[in-house]
Simulated scan of single mutants.
Amino acid sequence: MPKMKTHKGMKKRFKVSATGKVSHKRCGSSHLNSHKSGKQIRKLRKKSKLNVSAENRRVRTALRHKPSVNPLAVEAERLAAQAVQAEGEAPKAAEAPPAENN
């Protein structure tokens, strides 16, 4: 099966933050600005976030975005799993009779 490709048009227009929010440039700010108010021009300069979760998911899928993972959280989760596993094995080891060395 071939590799999944990133949608290059979306890559140029959208950016996905580390938390998974999708931002984009607002439309209508490139030309024909002489009749627009200063307030409107200033508002159009700012990036906007997508509010619809289905659209967010669609963009992230097209960009092949995988949510970033905090390495410290992964390590803590791994240590917690090992601790639970060690607790489960400790009683079994205590029940076994001690081996005598001769």
Rank of each mutant, 00 (worst) to 15 (best):
K43T: 09
A81L: 12
K47L: 00
A54Q: 07
E75C: 07
A80Q: 12
E55Y: 09
A86G: 01
Q40F: 04
H65P: 01
E87P: 01
A76K: 13
R42I: 02
A86I: 07
G88E: 09
N51A: 03
A93I: 02
K39S: 13
V74K: 14
E75I: 14
K39C: 04
R64V: 11
P91N: 05
S48T: 00
A54R: 11
K92Q: 11
A90M: 07
A62S: 10
R78A: 11
Q82Y: 07
A54L: 01
E55W: 06
S53Q: 11
V69T: 13
E87V: 12
A90G: 00
S68Q: 15
K43D: 08
K66C: 08
V74D: 08
P71S: 05
E55L: 06
R60K: 15
I41D: 05
G88P: 02
L50D: 03
V69K: 13
A86P: 00
V69I: 15
R78I: 14
L50H: 05
A76Q: 11
K39T: 13
K39E: 12
R42E: 11
A93G: 00
R78N: 12
K39M: 04
Q82E: 13
A81G: 14
K92N: 00
K66R: 15
A86S: 03
R57C: 05
V74F: 03
L63H: 06
P67I: 06
A90V: 03
R64N: 13
P91H: 10
E55M: 06
R42D: 07
A73L: 15
E77I: 02
N56E: 14
V74P: 02
K46T: 04
V59Q: 00
V52Q: 10
N70G: 04
V74E: 12
V52F: 03
V84S: 11
L63P: 03
L63I: 09
L72W: 12
R64C: 14
A81K: 14
G88S: 07
A81Y: 03
A73V: 15
A76G: 13
A76E: 14
A83V: 13
P67D: 13
A81M: 09
E89P: 02
Q40R: 14
A90C: 02
I41Q: 04
R64D: 10
K43A: 10
L44G: 02
E77S: 15
S48A: 13
A80C: 05
A54N: 02
I41P: 04
R45Y: 02
E77T: 14
S53E: 12
E89Y: 04
R45L: 00
P71F: 08
N70D: 15
K47A: 02
E87N: 06
E87D: 09
R57E: 14
E87W: 09
K43L: 01
L44M: 08
